[in-house]
Amino acid sequence: MSVRRIWASLSTLALAAVAALGVAGTAVAADSSSASAGGYVALGDSYSSGVGAGNYLPDSGDCRRSANAYPQLWAAANSPTSFAFVACSGATTSSVARGQLGALNAATSLVSVTAGGNDVGFAAVMQDCVLGSEATCLNSVNAAIAKMNNSLPGSLDSLYGSIRAGAPAAQVVVLGYPRFYQLSGSCVAGLTETERAAINDASDVLNGVLAKRAADAGFTFSSVVDEFTGHELCSGAPWLHSVTVPVQNSYHPTAAGQSGGYLPAFRSAV
């Protein structure tokens, strides 16, 4: 059996995990003191709830909200008047709209959100790339990119409009997703370099769509790509889990990725 197929067989552990994937500022940001003067609401998917960062809050259940996630860290450092941490693993734009926006109100002064990766099937992309051929992987990546360009913008517009309606005075920060791989890096098995490059390119497209829709909504977009540069998979010092146990952590930021990647990106936008 080839090295690739041995690794792929082990990678079946990741299937449950990737099902939870969701994967420059464009508006004037308020300073953190004014943001802290009102309520802060953290919306979104597993990249905001903190899957992979450990130390999950006892009442968060399958949403896996972590005490090490960037919303919790920011709130602890800035003491907003109120704090609602409602991000949840597996969330899509529509499930955020259905199940999380009740935390917003007229007194909300700051909102953060990650959403979009699950809408375009990034979990299925990673499954296809881990277990399938290179051609299967590239076809799956291209299908996800088509969704990013065609259906996702309307879904984001709907979500962002609902966020604005629920928190009319709030600064809203939309955070992006990291690139997964350092190319020409330290990985000696697993995906091909072509597959890794294609997955990174898809992340760039996704971030571009998020940035454009956020700008059109009057929200702030904050990329995390710079913060994660040098800490991708295959970097030798990753802030992202590869295939791991427990399986739900796979392809999610570690605690260091939350504190060293997402937190600075959010803080710079507020």
Rank of each mutant, 00 (worst) to 15 (best):
M1Y: 13
M1W: 12
R5K: 13
L10F: 14
L13H: 06
V18K: 08
L21G: 00
A27E: 11
D31I: 03
S32H: 13
S32D: 13
S36R: 10
A37G: 14
G38D: 10
G39D: 14
V41Y: 00
G44W: 02
D45R: 03
S46I: 03
Y47S: 12
S48M: 12
S48T: 15
S49K: 00
G52D: 01
G52M: 01
A53P: 05
A53I: 05
G54F: 06
P58D: 11
G61S: 09
G61W: 06
R64M: 11
R65F: 04
S66M: 03
A67F: 04
Y70V: 01
L73G: 03
W74Y: 12
A75S: 15
A76M: 07
F83A: 10
A84N: 13
A87Y: 05
C88M: 07
S89F: 01
T93S: 12
S94G: 11
G99V: 00
L101Y: 06
L101C: 02
L101S: 02
G102H: 05
A103V: 05
L104G: 04
N105R: 08
T114Q: 09
G117P: 02
G117S: 05
D119G: 01
D119S: 00
G121V: 03
A124I: 04
M126F: 15
Q127P: 02
D128F: 01
D128C: 08
C129F: 07
G132N: 08
G132I: 06
A135N: 11
T136W: 00
T136S: 14
C137L: 12
C137V: 09
L138F: 08
L138Q: 12
V141Q: 03
A143S: 15
A143R: 12
I145L: 00
M148L: 09
N150C: 00
S151P: 08
S151H: 05
L152A: 07
P153Q: 00
G154M: 00
D157T: 14
S158E: 10
S158G: 05
G161L: 02
A165L: 07
G166M: 03
P168C: 04
Q171K: 06
Q171L: 09
V172L: 01
V174H: 09
L175Q: 11
G176Y: 05
R179Y: 12
R179S: 13
F180C: 02
Q182S: 14
Q182N: 12
C187F: 09
V188H: 10
A189S: 12
T192I: 09
E195H: 10
R196A: 11
N200Y: 11
A202G: 14
S203G: 14
D204Q: 14
D204W: 06
L210A: 06
K212L: 13
A215P: 11
F219E: 02
F221K: 02
D226A: 15
E232L: 05
L233A: 05
L233W: 00
C234E: 07
G236S: 07
P238W: 04
Y251F: 15
P253S: 10
T254M: 02
A255Q: 11
A255D: 12
A256L: 14
Q258K: 02
P264A: 06
F266P: 06
S268V: 07
